[in-house]
Amino acid sequence: MELIRGIHNILPQHKGCVLTIGNFDGVHLGHQAVLAQVKQLAQSKQLPSCVMVFEPQPLELFAGSDAPARISRFREKYLALAELGIDRLLCVGFNRAFAAQDPEQFIEDLLLDKLGVQHLIVGDDFHFGQARSGNYALLERAASKYGFGLNSTSSLKLEQQRVSSTLIRSALQADQLHLAETMLGRPFALTGRVRHGRKLGRNLGFPTANVWLYRKKLPVSGVYAITARTCFGVFQGVANIGNRPTVQGVREQLEAHLFDFNQDLYGSQIEVVLRHKLRAEQRFDNLDALKQQIAVDEAAAKQYFSQQPALLNSLT
């Protein structure tokens, strides 16, 4: 999948596509249904399929720390869209100037002049431009005026429940991992690059892979039984997600202790799938107490996996 980072990198050869626009946070089953429509229509028209997303996501700009927690960071979103066979991903830098532009300018300059959109698929609640004054009705008038196709999306339902990023986020925050997995179409996972830490885990006898998560807010926190995909294969383990109050952590990160593993992961990417929550994150009075609890967590995770043999080598 081709990545176009920024409007300034749209080239003449990018003109002509079937486009959809949105946050696509989580790339869940509802998103996947929309993307299947985009792909099918693009193939019928012999055009590239294109997805437009924004970084930061609009609410992250306007609501700041009150913005919803992210289900997926940009890299995770990119990989999920690529796996679904989308041809192009346009990542538009979202700032107040972009948000304040005239909505008709957005249509004429970006959608038509730069992208040459032949067909657009968006939700009928899509708003854009100054004071969110651009809406589906305006797109309908533009489609009629300029001759491009337009479709609205319909929300996918599972057992009469609408699938949405908001519902998935709520399920994760309520520790309902199975419900989140059902709506995502895959287990919830966090990815990142393993970095050097303070080696406290190693000194306590439980070496950990430390991963900065690069999110303003996480939808999950606590201690989990995990499976992790590494460059050396798939391993079971236990992970702490949060700000590590016992050692006065200053950023939210993931620390994964992998069972029966003794390799160097520094600098490599790791994918950590949350399988079962063991407990909430907590502060301990001293490192000895923390060490004892880690041993308890490891035993609890191994007990969980002993009852889930299908998870031994699976991330699906």
Rank of each mutant, 00 (worst) to 15 (best):
I4S: 07
I4A: 07
G6Q: 03
H8F: 03
P12E: 02
L19M: 05
L19C: 09
T20W: 08
D25V: 04
A33I: 05
A33C: 04
V51P: 06
V51M: 05
E55Y: 03
E60T: 03
A63E: 15
G64Y: 01
P68E: 08
R70W: 00
R70F: 00
R70Y: 00
R73Q: 14
L81C: 11
I86C: 05
I86T: 02
R88D: 04
L90W: 01
F94Y: 15
A97H: 07
P103D: 05
D113E: 13
V117I: 11
D124F: 02
H127R: 15
H127N: 09
G129C: 00
G129Q: 00
G134C: 02
N135E: 03
N135Q: 03
N135S: 09
L138Y: 00
S144D: 07
G147P: 01
F148R: 09
L150M: 03
L150E: 02
S154I: 10
S155D: 07
S155G: 05
L158C: 05
Q160R: 14
I168S: 10
S170L: 14
A171Y: 09
A171L: 02
H178Y: 13
H178N: 10
M183W: 11
R186Q: 10
G192D: 06
R195V: 15
R195H: 13
N203R: 15
N210A: 06
R215Y: 00
K217H: 11
V220K: 08
G222H: 11
V223D: 01
T227Q: 14
R229T: 12
T230L: 04
T246L: 06
Q248L: 12
V250P: 06
F261T: 07
N262R: 14
N262V: 01
Q263E: 15
Y266K: 07
L274K: 12
L274T: 07
R275M: 12
R279Q: 07
E281Y: 04
R283N: 04
F284D: 01
L287V: 12
Q293Y: 10
I294F: 06
D297T: 08
A301F: 08
Q303D: 13
Y304M: 05
F305Q: 07
Q308T: 13
P309H: 12
P309F: 08
P309K: 12
L312M: 13
N313K: 11
T316F: 09
